[in-house]
Design a protein around this nucleic acid. Sequence first.
DNA 1: GTGAAAGCGCTAACAT
DNA 2: ATGTTAGCGCTTTCAC
Lengths: 339, 339
Amino acid sequence: MTRQPREPRLSDVAERAGVSPTTVSRVLNHRGYLSQTTKDRVAQAITELGYRPNQVARSLLGQRTNMIGVIMPTVSLPFFGEVVATLEHALGRHGYRTLLCNSMGRAEAESEYLAQLLGNRVDGIISGAHNDSIPTYATTRLPVVTIDRELAPHIPNFRADNVAGGRLATELLLERGARRPALFTSRSSARNGRERGYRAVLADAGIPPIVSTVEFHTPEPERTRLIHAALDQHAGEIDAVFATDDLTAGTVLEWVRGTGRRVPEAFKVVGFDGTEAIRRAMPWLTTVRQPIEQICLSAVDALLERIEQGVPQGGGPDDGSAPVPPMEFPVTLVEGATA
Amino acid sequence: MTRQPREPRLSDVAERAGVSPTTVSRVLNHRGYLSQTTKDRVAQAITELGYRPNQVARSLLGQRTNMIGVIMPTVSLPFFGEVVATLEHALGRHGYRTLLCNSMGRAEAESEYLAQLLGNRVDGIISGAHNDSIPTYATTRLPVVTIDRELAPHIPNFRADNVAGGRLATELLLERGARRPALFTSRSSARNGRERGYRAVLADAGIPPIVSTVEFHTPEPERTRLIHAALDQHAGEIDAVFATDDLTAGTVLEWVRGTGRRVPEAFKVVGFDGTEAIRRAMPWLTTVRQPIEQICLSAVDALLERIEQGVPQGGGPDDGSAPVPPMEFPVTLVEGATA
DNA sequence: GTGAAAGCGCTAACAT
DNA sequence: ATGTTAGCGCTTTCAC
């Protein structure tokens, strides 16, 4: 049974190498002129002790933690999972660690997370959570960018061209012969671009829209029940569905299977997102793919630029920080067998 | 244009409240006796300044960061996404933040992440990455628990009862009339419990096994090509597949669709995992559900217990720290329409 | 009940 | 080319 030694620190290394702590620090950070002898001895002491610089101390001194807070609804949904994986990878390449927060769609949770991240002195925040009106965002001095959702005019927003995606999906359904396509989405509102695209195409075609809303945080089996109930209600009229996410498309397909109708002949379905995981699971699904990688890489670039320029985001939307228009990235149609 | 003020600190609050920093600290930490007047004045100063304690400084002093490193292959796959979401939630309830690392199946990445986490002085690590022989784990003094994979005898491991799951899936296929079920898995080995279950049942039935391996980190479209090729190769013999994850089951179903065979009459498929996301996307899939929540909650409990007891894991497998048997949790069959 | 001083582990400024 | 000093923001003795 060995005694429990504490982690070695800089001064332990210094002592062992017979130099001052400063010198060790210099070796570690490749700063200033050091004799090769010194470098070697320090390097050896480091190896022997298994020394590893304490980043907490460095952060305290350097005023930066090299940590980014990432706030998303939940990585258990493949879209957000893929987003977070992509963000984490990109951040890592730039030397930043990812502090993950799953708000689960609860606004209080998001506020709480935000407060914690500020306390942890993260260098920046990437938010894709789906709550509006979290006042702290607008007033924090920390660099923030958002994915998908818009937070405030002066906070950079990166997202797919949702309106074009909604149009693309709906046009496809009509082209393929659908007479009455319904929309299934998580939240219906004027700010829902996919819904706007759907409505625009139907308006042009003179077809009345049918919109059903089921929040994706609704727990099972309630969620499936709601979707099936909505479909049952319109079973006589509709012959196609544009679902604004692929999971909902799957749930709709299950309902169609239950009715015995043939897909795509008698009923057509188009999804949205086109994540890698869902492409693997349901390759037959026709869907609109979001350029997740492009979106995430751009968001990371923008955030890091703001951080490294020391550009704070300003004390609020009206303190002179310029509004930035959202960056929208083109979607692509993934042809499957359901439309 | 307001000037750019730095974050307020304890001494700012103290000054504003007309007390010493020590007193503010006491108010913050509810320690010792404070007059109500003092408490109120400090509280007010905190609000007015928007003060938020610097956790970095606290960590440096307190020797704990309240951060846990979570290393997984990638949260873009729903199983790991659900695991990470569950872990993060459980950790958060206990006051711990989650530092996310996606190793993407690369061993060097995992070693690198591990080193970083140690540098960040996380209080513990939960690892579910799929690389063997990362030596640092065994020798670190930090509490570690693993999910799914076994790392070393003295590191607690939490996982589904994979052998029972493999048996369950294979038995179901045979019961339903399959004559020649093949196995599709990510890595074939004697330590693959699902494979062991499959092989055991087939051995009992006197049926020769057919095992195909496609690493789930294989990029598309290569991965799909490999799976389809393996299926083509055995197309004449096999009439069922047990896929050790649901995404592969989906890819197999697509191949079956392409051959025109009917599911489940002419071809049966059983998956594995049964994540919430995939249940939504493919409710028709017959699969074996892992008790993800149980696994994760137990892992978190075990880790936090070790942390809070100050029980380090020891300097290695042979320094006297007791070996712990893996904790296995029962799986359940989810009846769908594919078997 | 409250304050002054020391120090967590590190690095930057200022020596020499 | 290397050492000394001070201090990042906080909490914890110890004093009063």
